[in-house]
Amino acid sequence: MERFALLDAAALPVDRPNVDTDQIVPARYLQKPRSDDFGAYLFRDLRFAADGHEIPSFLLNQPAYRGARIVVAQRNFGCGSSREHAVWALFDYGIRAVIAPSFGDIFASNALKNGLLPVVLDEPVVAGLLEQLVRAPGLHLVVDLQAQEVRVPDGAVHRFAVDPFAKHCLVEGIDEITYTLSLLPAIEAYEARGEVLPSAKELQ
């Protein structure tokens, strides 16, 4: 996994609640291989008309926001389907952090496994950020995972919480499977206790 570095970048305001993973990447792209550039499918039906033309009112199509590497959105971002493709679409586009008052649980979990940081800030703070980002297109935010804070050009600093294990994995770029396999003796010991359902005998 890519290491999460200090992020100082333009932020895209997505000023709506409940942005579900169907909005982030429509289901018809789930059959595409991971080798595809999923950035092309990001917010596909919000960004492009059926004929492929850009929808100018969608902010990602405006020059000041095109280079965004941070998304700021209202509550429950990434709700819905478990598709990891939603994270791939954001990541491939270049997004490395999403700031919102709350996230879909599975989306947040998927994000952490792919070098994308979900940052939870209080609703009024997020509302304030959204307002600033609309008023000043291209405004940079700093997301500092080490210090666990978001810094705004006006001097405001917003602390955020992050799961210590997830932080460790993100900062070091650690692959979870490799880490878990180092705990194989604990897994084998659990299996040997025979409490697993159904028992090995029943499985045969």
């Binding site: 478990s82 599975i106 979990s109 998927n110 496994k113 979870e176 499977i177 878990t180």
Partner: peptide
């Protein structure tokens, strides 16, 4: 429910 990375895990 889990994502693809977790399925692999």
């Amino acid at each position: 429910g889990i994502g693809a990375s977790e399925v692999a895990h």
